[in-house]
Design a protein around this nucleic acid. Structure first.
Lengths: 136, 136
DNA sequence: ATTTATTTGGTACTTTAGTATGACCCTCCT
DNA sequence: AGGAGGGTCATACTAAAGTACCAAATAAAT
């Protein structure tokens, strides 16, 4: 955030400077008007593209970002979350057990808890709900 | 596509006109230079924002759009695809059967075919692969 | 008109998934 | 010290998912 403020402050200063130079140059006749206009146009076109890229990029990011608050609200523990992620990778309970060096029983316990907390009847439904909540 | 060409042609013409008016106004002294500069700046800022919004929007759209070609390549039939979509909604075979007015046997057949065609061992894995292929 | 692809459905079977319950261990907190 | 929360694992069970067949109807294509 601090970076953004600094960048924008510098940008505004640079633009004012550009304006002043432009008007001065035109008045004194050092540069052609068309040239100045073209520079202004290009500079602001680039600024426009840049601003939009930033804001849209953040939007896209947000919609893909994990909602950690929701995870807390649902009281899903770290281990349970690991299992949920493994489910979203299409792994079976046995495969998840191997991956996390646990027994299948433990995975079943975790899965059952996740289903309870997400209010899902099946792991596929859990995935759908988890996506809705932006937690995977 | 035709629309885009027309819009851009019009836009370029308008900009050239704006340029001509600007230079004329400045030379004849009807308007202040600062005013002209400000208008040029704002216009191009807006154009920059607009161009970027268009291109980025299409990018986002593309990444979420269904790859119909891939569906054909995988030889997934319409009915099988319906079942795949129902799976991604977290439904059980019985629920899918009810939804599509079919027997559970039929759903099982479709599911098995989808798993074969997607080279998946489970429905959750099918979902993961289908997402990778952008077909859901 | 015969082939081809799609869709539907069945039986019988194996494998996974999921539930219920209880137990043990650890760590952090008061 | 006792309790709460998290993690691990087991048994025993039910439910769901998935496989392997087979069979038959339909519609589109050649």
């Amino acid at each position: 955030m601090k970076k953004t403020i600094l960048v924008f402050s510098g940008l505004i200063l640079a633009l004012i400077l550009l304006f002043q130079i432009s008007t001065f140059s035109i008045h004194s006749g050092h540069l052609k008007i068309e040239f100045i206009l073209a520079i202004i146009a290009i500079v602001f076109l680039i600024i426009g593209i840049y601003i939009n890229k930033k804001s849209l990029h953040n939007k896209v990011k947000d919609s893909n970002e994990i909602n950690h608050q929701k995870l807390k609200d649902l009281e899903i523990t770290p281990r349970e979350y690991e299992v949920l992620q493994a489910i979203s990778e299409g792994l079976s309970n046995k495969e998840i057990a191997t991956k996390l060096f646990l027994s299948e029983s433990t995975i079943k316990t975790h899965v059952s808890n996740v289903l309870l907390k997400l209010n899902a009847k099946r792991r596929t439904q859990a995935l759908q709900i988890a996506k809705k909540y932006h937690i995977i």
